[in-house]
Design a binder for these strands. Sequence first.
DNA 1: TGGCCTAACGCAAACGTTTTCGTGTTTATA
DNA 2: TATAAACACGAAAACGTTTGCGTTAGGCCA
Lengths: 348, 348
Amino acid sequence: MKRKVTLKQIARELDVSISTVSKALRNSPEISDDTIQKVQAFAKLYNYRPNNIALSLKNRKTNTIGILIPEIVHHFFSKVIRGVELVANKRGYNVIIGLSNESFAKEVINMEMLANGSIDGFILSISKETQQLQDYHHFNETMSQGMPIVMFDRVVPDIKCDKVIVDDFNGAKHAVEKLIENKCKSIALITTKDYVSVGKLRTQGYLDALEESKITPQAELILKIDDNLDYEVHLEKLEAEIEQLFKSNKKIDGVFAVNELYAVSAMKVARKLGLNIPNDIQVIGFTDGVLSKHATPSLTTVSQHAQQMGEKAADLLIDKLESENEDEDESYHTVVIPTELIERKSTK
Amino acid sequence: MKRKVTLKQIARELDVSISTVSKALRNSPEISDDTIQKVQAFAKLYNYRPNNIALSLKNRKTNTIGILIPEIVHHFFSKVIRGVELVANKRGYNVIIGLSNESFAKEVINMEMLANGSIDGFILSISKETQQLQDYHHFNETMSQGMPIVMFDRVVPDIKCDKVIVDDFNGAKHAVEKLIENKCKSIALITTKDYVSVGKLRTQGYLDALEESKITPQAELILKIDDNLDYEVHLEKLEAEIEQLFKSNKKIDGVFAVNELYAVSAMKVARKLGLNIPNDIQVIGFTDGVLSKHATPSLTTVSQHAQQMGEKAADLLIDKLESENEDEDESYHTVVIPTELIERKSTK
DNA sequence: TGGCCTAACGCAAACGTTTTCGTGTTTATA
DNA sequence: TATAAACACGAAAACGTTTGCGTTAGGCCA
């Protein structure tokens, strides 16, 4: 089991100094052609590759960016990662991933681990627990140490950093407007508790769309799900709540749900109650994941362009990283990614 | 914008040497209590954290493990990552992710990038293109440089390394046996081209189950999909092929598909053709992802316990990393994760 | 008072690079 | 022939740690 070959070993074998080897490999004019040939041949033979860790230490730059997300088993986050990876690799950066599992403590620990030299900057979406606690000291500390942060999707408005967000408000609003256009008279909303920032914004979009059409929102048509439950497990509970909603409001003919799962569950319950989609009830969801595409009927949904978000976030971060030396650009951008209503079979 | 505080800075401020600071922080008996107090107080005040990069360089150990997978927007791989992350963090390791996007070239490049000091070992699943080309030099080179590799799911049998695999053969076999038990007489198989190792194994399981029940496999009941197509885009093509299968074999009363998507698509096509599931046709898929759970009807499927695979892979790798010093344990393990048939509404 | 022990600390090397600044040798020029 | 310039290379510092060992000073004992 050989170790990786280093400059020092090459130098010893060829009886030259380390610096000569280093220069020869980079084709320095200081070094004679003879030596360059010799060194490069030897390096190729032994498959020499510079040690990234040593380079990072010397350059005080890791060329690695850290992604910190609440959960990876989610189409949305996976796609964001994909976008980040795409442009990061294109621009010569690696990607390292931390998972908070929606926990504040894990978010803090993960940040500290990565912040101590492992990465040059963060791309993150904050955990639900952090949103509840509203404790953002770790973000501020990290940034005060000169490490840039780009937040996406679930952001904290007060924190000064670059942000990439979905136009949750208008995405929701347009979806509900679509339902209204399609003659829905009694439109239910299935959303999360208010502390989830995106849920709140989508709820506001729903309300705004109703108001603009002079429809008075009715509290009993709004179902707020406790999103702390792991719905992989508590699927029945979710469905029971939706069933209750439908049963006590028989006139519901449209549903807007703030995520895929709620929408698909609503369709399932509706079908169980003997309702036809889209004839009796039309349904629109949020997030264009696999569920929407392959549900029966396929689900009309608000697409967030997750991959594009990831790409944009990575570009913002790398721009900041690479500008830092030249000009101390202390301005922060918030990029809003427009949503798109993808019409499928769950609406008329 | 402050930089991160280093030992050197603390030393300068407190007018002691760097080594004294280092020792004081680690409570060395060499250092007087007074100095220890002073240094630790100062370090706490300025939130000192040792620089991981410097530690990695010094210790020749990064405490980071690299995951290299073909695709992240997949429930299966996401869950594996989750498992790896879980035990890695528990055992003091970070996780860094590389995506090959099913491309051989990207797999090689990503490996080289990570292998040069960034990580201590690999957990990977090989790309489809690599499986086709059967070019495994990068794995062998990496291992010959003393970097351990654990392969999971899509493995290369010839390569000497730890492996974590799904019992694809028996998983498929049991699924088909279930269909036979349920009185299916004409069972179709929807699978991939043979170069995909797992597809091949599942196909063999299908054939074996048939033979054991004295049923002669019929070539026209086996549909081999070209898995190179991105089925996010080529969904219609997939469905058209399945429709063709059903139309030319009207007696089909059971379907075993080697993944979720094929199974769900089969159900969709069947329904379109006016067939009832599970009364006219029973369907079983592979991989317990979101699609299976939320399909209508919910899909009976072979669960691979992806998260458990990730956990096991991480344990194997870290065990190897941490044993390496003591005894040169050159034995390799192959862990087979048993599958589980999760019965839902698509079978009787 | 001389010698020794111990407490408390600093020096320097090492990890693997890159790069600046010498230094020695050869060649060309006056 | 003496001197300058060109050439080819090496030494050393730096990035931030840890650690074995050397060093200093004081105290103690005989």
